[in-house]
Design a protein around this nucleic acid. Sequence first.
DNA 1: GTCTATATTCCGATAGAC
DNA 2: GTCTATCGGAATATAGAC
Lengths: 201, 201
Amino acid sequence: MARKTGSHSEITGPRIQDAALKLFARHGYAAVSMRQIAAEVGVQAGALYNYVPHKQALLFELMRGHMVALLDAADAALEPAARPDAALEGFVRFHIGYHLGRVDLVFISYMELRALEPENFSVIEALRGRYEDRLEAILSDGKDVFDVKDTKLATLALIAMLTGVTNWFRESGRLSPEGVADSYVEMARRMVRSKEVLKPR
Amino acid sequence: MARKTGSHSEITGPRIQDAALKLFARHGYAAVSMRQIAAEVGVQAGALYNYVPHKQALLFELMRGHMVALLDAADAALEPAARPDAALEGFVRFHIGYHLGRVDLVFISYMELRALEPENFSVIEALRGRYEDRLEAILSDGKDVFDVKDTKLATLALIAMLTGVTNWFRESGRLSPEGVADSYVEMARRMVRSKEVLKPR
DNA sequence: GTCTATATTCCGATAGAC
DNA sequence: GTCTATCGGAATATAGAC
């Protein structure tokens, strides 16, 4: 059970990722040094290179892991056969719930796109496009129920509106994540003028 | 009329601002060096310090100038006595038009907030709050016409949706700024369920 | 696996010549 | 007002001891 001092391979790896995530989100990729990350973990800078080939890979793997996990979670959470209005509500609730639980990852995944080398940027952009396609498909499949002139535009408007929540939401605020989601479900429905919303009038 | 070689005070100042804006928007504040800015202008790094006390002031003045100009332009463009629906439409059209003409300034003004020293950050945040108040007042003044449960939430959702345009709009795309604004006016009206929109149904 | 030490390059900012 | 030269420090990444 005893472990030699200075040997922590199973634990140091994840701690480096956590420290990098926290510091990148707070100060930005370019403003954070490998020394700062090492200090946060509690090792010397040189030790990081036992786990990561270079700083760029640290950022890229954080972003790629986030996008892949997001797509997997979306596939698991969204019911493909749902009726259009339920599908839209499901997407809004999933998006807000998932993103509010990972604000740092969300933040760096679109703030630090500039810091990615071109090949890495292309990978992340492709994954992001696949996620946006999920919402666009919902709007497109429901075109008989919704009233949307430009599906692509509505997709981009909805995603921007929903993701914006991560910029101001605070756990200590007056609204719970569920309360926020309730309001955004209604705003999203109104935007596409879903018949479920208009009926009560 | 002849000017001594190496003396360009009236022209170099603005060119430094332009170069810094372009480079900060493309690569991020922390990733850009004073040497790079100087190279873009065509001078040596030391010459920058005849115009700017330090790098931080360069960023802060770009952001402060942008926010002050935005507030001035909003005051000039928005009709205080307009009926609620017209006021909302006016805000949407102003916001999209103004922001699409200054995508680099918009970009750094919310991407580089982290790079501001605390006192500078407070100044910019206060100016941003004053701008958001313009929209919140429109929604609040029209509470008899609009159907909005949570004015603050709707304000934040609308601003996020509108500002998101600057992230994907391209001059060469299929939509003109006016066409984009038309669509967003309709989406904004639907979100607050303005009666002008629902009447035709 | 982590340490210390270091190679190499670059940073922001300043000083003094012209 | 711009130049060259430089100060003092910090950056990424590597080498070799333990």
